[in-house]
Design a protein around this nucleic acid. Structure first.
Lengths: 192, 192
DNA sequence: GATAACACTTGATGTAAATCAATTGCTATT
DNA sequence: AATAGCAATTGATTTACATCAAGTGTTATC
């Protein structure tokens, strides 16, 4: 499935054939079965991960045992706790697969070296970062200004593909509402 | 006040004296009086802004006339709608000063050129972006997992300096709660 | 020094969403 | 085919927070 990664790279930056090989060659493919962890709370994250197949999520579990989902990642998305990778501090997040999945792992060291040695890679990563930031800003805005129903509608607009793949209870968690509330909200929407 | 900007640059990157001048020379100092807009909803944002003095905020106003504050920026922070600047689309945000302030403006064109011509600048900006992203992630996490009181305590931990400068009603808005709720939450906290 | 203009507090009431609990479907496994 | 194990729905109840409405205190403004 390294081909998925290469295709992605081609679409995202101006790589020479040589650079492309260089980037792809440091990636290590790993299968992650449904419910299997990629990283657990307390671990120091060592790898950036690119999803070639399946779907994963980043989340925490609070004292009451409730899961709070921070992010999903499907094919052609990156996932990983940048904070932990960069600082070397233990991660506060869990990452696991919610479908049988496959990721391309790149170790921090190799990733950092790529950023230096392959300008196209560096630019690509910074572009992604920029985009991720804007998405995050936007999501913050939904939290401070929208009702449960509006949050869900906004989610549908932006991530309808996720809506079809991810259990409702997880979408609720991602939106910061309960599964019951989401169920009722959906009923309301359909009714109109 | 361009000195504030130069001092900041020195602390944030490995600039040669020449590069430092180059960066500083493209910045245009602008005074922004309290309540004066830097950008308004509907405008296409043209400049990145670095705050050399004072305090500004990014916010929206909903149909009911309620303000939702997305960000504050004080001395040594950047502010501006990256999305609008990059895409050329009208901004959905208002930015105004909540104290008499002063900013260093850098136009999109000059900013982009600096990113290309001054590697230290590019690296610095990407570092800031990375940090901004992590802060945003963190804030999202507070929204999906904390109560009003916990959100405020978390805010205090991270931004106590802002707490002293910004009206409570605006902090409430930033936290996605009402001013009344914040007032009661504070009373609770003091009581213990 | 009176008056306005905010910023914050406090109380009464309303409501969206959470919680608790039971039921109905699925699909997965034996 | 029976059983277990989730995922979603639905109803009853509670609660955290919002809303509405007066108040008080503090700082500007004429």
């Amino acid at each position: 499935m390294i081909e998925v990664f290469k295709t992605y790279l081609k679409g995202k930056g101006n790589y020479t054939e040589e650079e492309l090989e260089k980037v792809a060659s440091v990636a290590v493919i790993k299968k992650v079965r449904k419910r299997q962890y990629l990283t657990q709370e307390g671990d120091v994250a060592k790898n950036h991960a690119f999803v070639t197949k399946g779907c994963l999520r980043t989340y925490t579990v609070d004292e009451k045992g409730i899961e709070h989902i921070l992010n999903f990642a499907i094919e052609n998305w990156w996932i990983g706790d940048r904070e932990s990778i960069q600082t070397g501090h233990p991660s506060i997040y869990n990452i696991d697969a919610i479908e049988d999945s496959e990721v391309a792992l790149i170790s921090k060291e190799k990733f950092d070296r790529l950023c230096i040695e392959v300008p196209a890679f560096n630019d690509m990563i910074n572009n992604i970062l920029q985009k991720s930031f804007l998405v995050a800003q936007n999501r913050i805005h939904t939290f401070i200004s929208l009702t449960a129903e509006e949050k869900y509608l906004s989610f549908l607009e932006k991530f309808s593909h996720l809506n079809m793949r991810v259990p409702q209870s997880m979408i609720a968690s991602y939106l910061g509402i309960t599964a019951e509330t989401l169920s009722r909200v959906r009923k309301q929407i359909v009714k109109r």
